[in-house]
């Protein structure tokens, strides 16, 4: 099973390495989002530091929907999903594979976003504990996003549908991630309960995804 998941992830990354369209689009979008936030909210000095967690996670949330709908749309355009369905009997393996692939792509964006945000927002985001929060948040995001993107690509509105479906479901994740990041930056507030919230969210959404994914891709 792990081998199959690994194969799907490797396939996704190879395709991405070939075209680079998803990661580059997400990166450019994320950079522009941070710039627009800076202009719109006048983020200089202390206000930049205070707004950093919110700006960071909003940027991840929006650029994530961009990447996820591309990732599933690519699968659908080339008939890749039918191929996957034929090749892999266990639907949950496909779910894990696609989610892990999206997770890696989003992580690449986060890796660029953290130093960029550190410079533009004047905070130090390059810390292992903040990176941990980023990973936890991205895991849940990838799980929810993969399930809902598989739904959204089969609707008429497609790219428009994914954020509408995903963002309200991501509300608890975003609250917890922003609060955890902010708490770590301030350094005084305990963040254990937010970390726990993120872990619970991740586990619940992975479970829901594993159970329901087969009903989304069938037929």
């Amino acid at each position: 099973m792990l081998r199959q998941i690994g194969a799907i992830v490797a396939k996704d990354l190879a395709a991405e390495l070939h075209t680079r369209e998803i990661v580059s689009a997400m990166l450019v979008f994320a950079t522009m989002a941070i710039l627009i936030f800076s202009f719109a909210l006048d983020l200089r000095g202390a206000s930049g530091r205070a707004a950093a967690p919110g700006v960071l996670w909003t940027t991840i949330a929006f650029s994530g929907t961009l990447g996820l709908s591309r990732s599933l749309a690519r699968e659908q355009q080339n008939g890749g999903l039918s191929g996957l369905l034929l090749a892999v009997e266990e639907r949950s393996v496909i779910f894990f594979g696609k989610a892990a692939g999206s997770f890696v792509l989003m992580l690449l964006v986060v890796v660029v976003l953290l130093p960029l945000g550190s410079v533009l927002l004047n905070v130090n985001l390059l810390r292992p504990d903040i990176a941990g929060v980023m990973v936890l948040g991205t895991v849940g995001y990838a799980a929810v996003g993969t399930l809902l993107a598989a739904i959204a690509v089969n609707t008429r509105a497609r790219e428009v549908m994914l954020p509408i479906l995903a963002l309200p479901v991501l509300v608890p994740l975003l609250i917890a991630a922003v609060q955890a990041t902010a708490g770590l930056l301030e350094g005084m507030v305990p963040v254990d309960s937010w970390i726990r919230m993120l872990v619970v969210y991740d586990l619940v959404m992975i479970a829901v995804g594993v159970v329901t994914f087969e009903y989304v891709v069938e037929g």
Binding site: L148, I151, P168, M205, E218, G219
Partner: peptide, 13 residues
């Protein structure tokens, strides 16, 4: 099917 899945995801949220 989609609505059933989304109804479950939404309620869990």
């Amino acid at each position: 099917r989609f609505a059933a899945v989304y109804g479950i995801v939404a309620f869990v949220t």
